[in-house]
Design a protein around this nucleic acid. Structure first.
Lengths: 243, 243
DNA sequence: CGCCCCATTGAAGTCTTTCAACGCAGGTGG
DNA sequence: CCACCTGCGTTGAAAGACTTCAATGGGGCG
């Protein structure tokens, strides 16, 4: 039960390059002018924080991929998202006193720790920063509701298509290829997120591949036709996809 | 396409009684000291706001029950929650420029309209208010993630049990009976929220009733054994419930 | 009074899950 | 260096859960 399962933290000046990475999220550059931030490396498999630990800071993802999950006392677990570069982690725990979810690094990550008291001070001194934080929270709410819609109205193949489409869009937003990328998470993680079983995820990927929409080789994904993928995710081309 | 499908709005002084109703939500009483609020009555079936309308205000529910839902262009729809007295509605649309969901009154409601620019001014003048708003947003995030967990890990009977349990707890928090209440929403609404079909919801209610855990008569619910209901929702007593 | 929507229940059908087996890749230790 | 082991991914077949289709009854509203 170590406090933070991460490697050597160190105080560093804040990288200016980050500004462009958060178009509609928090204005981290402005924040860095107000407070001292803490950079940390987290190796794949290690926790950024665990549910139950005292809430102390928000985390800005500077590099890498993470998995966020909630669990219950009776052993049920649900992946609720896969934060990546440019996203703010920990906001769901504000006001609860302790972290309410687990956040684990899927690969080696670099994260910026923002002690929450300092965030509050900075917000008080800088109204636009406060507004940006509020917007980041609201955007997170919209995203959750989008996924509730997706999980509630689409079948297995469509959900997987929507998942890939979302991943592609987020890769593009970061300057990566939207048509060729590597899944950082296991089939089991994807299945939990999409409320399916891992075999079903595998089958859905096989269906999409058989339809010529994507190419799959273990965790390597190549999107052959983004438009057809989008139609699958939207519900239109479903019948054809499943065949 | 009327701007707001509601009955005659009117400026009113803010009711002090509301203070106790929002223990961990926004401190509305403090807000009322800072700004002029607008009270509105909304009849059952009418919209508080519609997706796509320009975002102008948040709404505090003073009385009544509402349904919040998201929809897509291709006709899919998902109920994302049932706000009731003491809750803040509209926060999911902050920063988006327009409302992103539909909010409909399930019965006659009384809501307090809080123009967003005035909310921002009040927050700037009152740091604790800003903190309360942030906490309300974070709490909403936690709630969404709780439902993702519920929908992702429980079967139909368990989901319905969890839904009833949640409703009971919220009724109790408002001073209503937690063991005897009336569902304000249709089976179809419940089904959409729980990612099921309405027949399945009906069957689940019948199962719970057959097990002696609840009594159902159309929309009237009587909880015979809250403890067993909780075990159903938690996953333990599932086998017995389903039988 | 009649209509329509909501709720309920049964039976058949479909989709996802469960169970099982197999191959592959990476890490460990002999 | 290779054997082994373990976890991940894939696929098939059977089972199960939920959905779909259909029919009926009740209640509210015009």
């Amino acid at each position: 039960m170590t406090a933070m399962t991460a490697t050597t933290p160190a105080f560093v000046p804040f990288p200016a390059s980050m500004l462009r990475l958060v178009p509609d999220s928090l204005d981290i550059a402005a924040l860095s002018a107000q407070m001292t931030v803490l950079r940390r490396r987290v190796r794949g498999g290690q926790h950024v924080y665990r549910a139950g630990q005292p809430f102390r800071a928000l985390f800005f993802v500077h590099a890498g991929f993470l998995r966020r999950s909630v669990a219950t006392a009776d052993g049920r677990e649900q992946v609720t998202g896969f934060p990546m570069r440019g996203e703010l982690v920990g906001v769901e725990s504000i006001g609860s006193g302790h972290y309410t979810v687990d956040v684990v690094a899927l690969d080696d990550c670099e994260i910026i720790e923002l002690p929450y008291p300092a965030v509050l001070d900075a917000c008080a001194a800088m109204p636009t920063l406060q507004g940006a934080l509020t917007q980041a929270l609201a955007q997170e709410l919209r995203r959750d509701q989008y996924w509730m819609l997706t999980l509630g109205t689409l079948n297995a193949d469509q959900r997987v298509a929507a998942f890939l489409q979302d991943l592609a869009a987020r890769h593009r937003a970061l300057g990566f290829s939207a048509s060729h990328f590597v899944l950082r998470m296991s089939r089991i993680d994807i299945a939990s997120f999409l409320a399916l079983k891992h075999e079903t995820v595998t089958r859905a990927l096989s269906h999409l591949a058989a339809a010529g929409i994507i190419a799959v080789e273990r965790r390597e994904i190549r999107i052959a036709c983004a438009e057809r993928l989008g139609r699958c995710a939207g519900g239109a081309e479903l019948a054809r996809c499943a065949a």
